[in-house]
Structure formats: C-alpha cells, structure tokens
Simulated scan of single mutants.
Amino acid sequence: MERERWIDAAPGVRLWAEERGPADAPVLLLVMGAQASGIGWPDELVDLLVERHRVIRYDHRDTGRSTWAFEERPYPVTALAEDAVAVLDGFGVERAHVVGMSLGGMLTQLLIADHPDRLLSATVIGTNALSTVPYTAPDGTRVPPQELPGIAPELLELWSRPVVERNLEDELDHRVEHWRMLGGDQLPFDAAYARELERRVVEHTGHHRSGDAHGRADSSGMDRTEALARTEVPTLVTVAPAEPVSPPPHPQHLAQAVRGARLVEIPGMGHALPREVHAPLAAAILAHTAEHTAGV
C-alpha cells in the first residue's frame, strides 16, 4: 500500500513524501541526491526493500512535488538534512534506518553527526566523506581528501553547461545522456529504462524544467570530522567500482572517517541505480538493517 503525505518542513516549504510497506515494520528512509526527486529511487528497488521495511521516500525541496522557491527563500545544503528529520517527524517516526545516495549520502552523514538519536543505522552510497581526516592507503601512504580522485571530466563538462529550457523529448534525451555518463563503463546501459524512469519523474513532478538550486545552495559548515570519528551509528558504505563522481578510494576514505563503518562492494555499479544493481544493493542494505534492528 502506498500512502502519500505533505510535510511542512520549514516556513513556506512543503515536502511531498510517500510510505510503502507494513505500518509496523522498521522504517527505512531513502534520501536522494542533488536535484533528484524521491521517485529517482526505482520502484523495483523499493519493492525489494519493502519486503522487510516500511519505506519512506520524499522529494527534496526544489525537486518533484515539493516547494520550488530557492530564488525567494535561499537555504544552505545543511537545511536539506533538517528536512529529512522533518520527514521522520511528519510520519511520527522516532528512529529509522537511513539510506542516502550522492548528496543524500552527505545529508546522511550530517544526520549521523547531528541527529544520531534518530538513526538505527546508516547506509551511504556514492559520496565523499565530510571529514578532513587523510585517507590511509593499503601501503600506509596518507593522502589528504582534496588529493583523492575527482569527478570524471565528461561529467564536469556536462554540469558546467547553463541550464536551458528544452521541450520534453529533448529534456529526456539530455537526462538519458546524463545517466549514461553516471552509470560508468562496467554494466550495459539501458537507455530505454533510463528514459522511462525520467518520464515517471516528469509525470510525478508535473513539469520537465531542470533545477540547479542544490548546486547554488551554500555548502559551507558541513565538516563533521570529529562527530563522524566518534559516532556509534552503525554505518555501511557501498563501493561502486565504476563510480565516476566519487570514485574509489572515496568509499574507503569514508569508511575510515566514520567510526566502525563497514564496506560492501556492489559489482559493476557506477553512480546510478540500473536494474543490475537492485538485487545486490537491496541484499546489502537488508543485511545491514537486519543486524541493527533486533530488539528495537
């Protein structure tokens, strides 16, 4: 059963959210990436998670059906993490397992650091550590975070282009090409699947305008080095070998920065959620949440 809800997260900011699964199951909150609607979590993946969880996904502000008002009411990136807490409050959830992807992985780290009492566990996908701790390579070399591998050049070039208005089919073409780049080079790219996912996002949103609010939001004040190093929130970090945004060893660095974090590799994965990764990713998440649900 799907249940929609509108949540007043801040003055003038209303968020769309949806819950699926048994009302009495442990809650799992899905936090998407920058400028990505909650519908970006594919239904097929959500269905796998619903087998053991009451799953909540939601639209960030300036995405999907949530309030688009950055020009009138600009906000810092940290406000998006507080929105996640507001979503839990809106559903009456005291503690939840949280899974964050890309920017959502950074927001999950903010929740680990700032709201540990609200988390049963955390899973972080495709993101960088909010920590200044150097990465210690297998040979013992210590590498400052700013010297770790960067974003693939073709993505940087695409992201540097100005946001322009396109007709629907041209916008879908653009988004499919974006997903092709994000998916990496180890799994076959299914353009039809990516197009259908984005068409569902457009239908859900009600328009196909592109946004860039999250890229313009103030990203200062996000360092959580000390809090991550002493956290007791059980954290799982996924390793995506074809990741073009936060390539290895970023996951390894993140696992070193977050106290007690564990790594799990998802074969062939890039910075996307194609069909091929649904089963292994869901299995990894469910194994992690099961380990930290007992007795709750």
Rank of each mutant, 00 (worst) to 15 (best):
P116E: 13
E147I: 00
R199L: 15
V46C: 05
D62S: 15
N167K: 07
R209Q: 14
L236N: 11
F189D: 11
L88R: 12
D218W: 12
M269I: 03
S131H: 03
D223W: 04
T289I: 06
L45R: 01
H115Y: 11
D83S: 13
R95S: 15
V98R: 00
L49V: 05
A217F: 15
E169D: 13
T108K: 00
E169T: 07
V201F: 00
D59N: 06
L236I: 02
L15M: 08
A84I: 05
Y193F: 10
A284T: 01
G100Y: 01
P280E: 00
E243N: 07
Y193I: 00
P22G: 06
M101K: 02
A17V: 14
T78G: 13
A113K: 10
L45E: 00
M32W: 01
A272P: 03
V277A: 03
L120N: 04
D190L: 00
H97I: 02
G150H: 10
W159E: 12
Y58T: 04
L158S: 05
R262T: 11
I125A: 00
T136W: 03
L236Y: 08
E19Q: 12
S246L: 03
T205L: 03
D139N: 07
E177L: 09
A192T: 14
F189W: 08
G40W: 10
A137Y: 10
L88K: 08
P247M: 08
P234G: 09
T132L: 13
V143P: 06
S219Q: 11
T136S: 11
S246V: 09
V50N: 05
E198D: 13
R14Y: 15
Q252T: 02
H292G: 07
R175V: 00
G268F: 03
H208Y: 11
G64T: 14
G12V: 15
L187C: 09
A96Q: 01
V133M: 15
R199G: 06
G33M: 06
E147W: 14
E177Y: 08
G268S: 09
S121W: 15
D117M: 09
P42F: 05
L15Q: 10
L158K: 15
T225R: 14
I151M: 14
D43A: 06
S66F: 14
L187T: 07
A213N: 03
H174A: 10
H208L: 08
V13W: 15
L187N: 05
E157K: 13
L182E: 02
G40C: 11
R209D: 12
H174V: 01
I285R: 00
H288N: 04
V233F: 09
H204K: 08
D117H: 11
A36L: 06
V46F: 03
A84V: 07
Y135L: 02
E72A: 15
A294W: 02
D62W: 03
P188I: 03
G12D: 10
E94K: 07
D173P: 02
F70Q: 14
G105T: 04
W68R: 14
V176R: 05
A36C: 11
D24C: 03
H204V: 07
D117I: 12
Q109H: 05
P138H: 10
P116N: 09
G268C: 07
R224P: 02
G140L: 10
T289W: 01
L263N: 06
V143N: 00
L172R: 02
V143Y: 02
T132G: 12
A279V: 14
L187Y: 13
R180F: 07
